[in-house]
Nucleic acid binder design. Sequence first.
DNA 1: CGATCAGTTGAGAATGGTCAAATTCGGTGG
DNA 2: CCACCGAATTTGACCATTCTCAACTGATCG
Lengths: 243, 243
Amino acid sequence: MQIQTSPLTRKLGAFVSLSDVELEILARFHSRRREFQSKHEFIHEGQTKSSAFILSKGWACSFKVLPDGDRQIVDFQIPGDFLGLRSILFRTADHNIEAVTRIEASEVLAADVLRAFSDAPRLAVAVLWAASRDEAMVVEHLVNIGRRSAEERMAHFLLELSARLALVGIGDKTGYECPLTQYHLADALGLSAVHVNRVLRQLRDSGLVTFQSGRVTFDDFDGLAELAGFDTGYLDQTGPLLT
Amino acid sequence: MQIQTSPLTRKLGAFVSLSDVELEILARFHSRRREFQSKHEFIHEGQTKSSAFILSKGWACSFKVLPDGDRQIVDFQIPGDFLGLRSILFRTADHNIEAVTRIEASEVLAADVLRAFSDAPRLAVAVLWAASRDEAMVVEHLVNIGRRSAEERMAHFLLELSARLALVGIGDKTGYECPLTQYHLADALGLSAVHVNRVLRQLRDSGLVTFQSGRVTFDDFDGLAELAGFDTGYLDQTGPLLT
DNA sequence: CGATCAGTTGAGAATGGTCAAATTCGGTGG
DNA sequence: CCACCGAATTTGACCATTCTCAACTGATCG
């Protein structure tokens, strides 16, 4: 079997230097290719026996729905992200995941993951690290919603996305392609769609950032970063800790 | 060495059946006893070379501080909780942790944890599971702040705390001892201290719950749970997945 | 050419914030 | 035992951010 460098191995390798054997085990994770249409919900809260997925193309989002129908988007997943890990570790999924765009992903069965952990224990450490990184992002999201104004939230969110996309080689300092609707932004930031629209106009009018027709354009990156109090510390990677 | 059942082993054992060797390694984590006074901040954001701690007595809280001085409490830690794991896995702490009450904890060095992972790889899986459980709590907290009204937030928060405390044998259906101030609640829930006070009075006046002089008393548990849309799914434990 | 969905805008209402001032309460020193 | 101190809590008045409702535009698609 040919061992390829996938976005996943690149990510895990940043923390744990992976051996050929470990790389091969990871490579086998990519044997079940799946494809989902935009808006398809492929992991449902409460679902038992769910799989995890490694996203190779497109965007997805994980969210929870409240009794009154409101939803809170917890995170967006971009290519290279591992998703649904918690639904494997717990026996039942505690959140929903749906495709934002049409997506391509590799399905990974719970048994595959658990077997990989016992065959190559260092992979568990690597996944622990990746999961901690995800948790750090959720924490930052929490701070964002809990303590920042609508304008700051939006600014911070757009910058964070930019930083994450940059890590997988998408977008640059001038901006990036972004398939999200204003409803997605509203559900992610805990705002109403109407207010999202107003905030976006305000940011555009102040010459900071333009969110339009599927693209985020930074008109004044530094100004935006200052408004948001943006700091990339929680995304830092400084080379393998475990060699 | 005598192998004792600590809150930590009980927690990890819920996911991975631990061998004697693994139990002994965990027991060695308890060799460096520490004690901190209330309000002492013992993990600082940006700090490198920080340790982790296993909390054995008292309450702590982890939080982030924004440039303008506002703070967002991410989570409270109670006896049995592992804290500061991320500050070990990343080389630098991405959040602060301070003692809410006087606390007793065991300090665990980064090297100890990494050595334990290579000596007993299954421990890494167990810790991964525990970390995922923490992440699930942060996610629920995010939903709470993002999509619920102040009253619902408070109700949900007090119920969640009750459920967590019950797992380590503190409190019962009638209520629990709670050393938090209204400022803690405000910082955790993304509200102002003044509004926290009003919300608490409202909940008390509606006969649902009383938060007073260091104690939470459920006057109408079911009514409160209904108001909060409370569901314990994300805390469920259903026995070891890995045997 | 309707139908639907994303985006836009306005007007009025509501939730929660800010500021400022009491009040309570657990210590602590005299 | 009592006076006092600081921290935590409580309350009122006013203000701001954000929400809701409702209407309208523009694009896309069968």
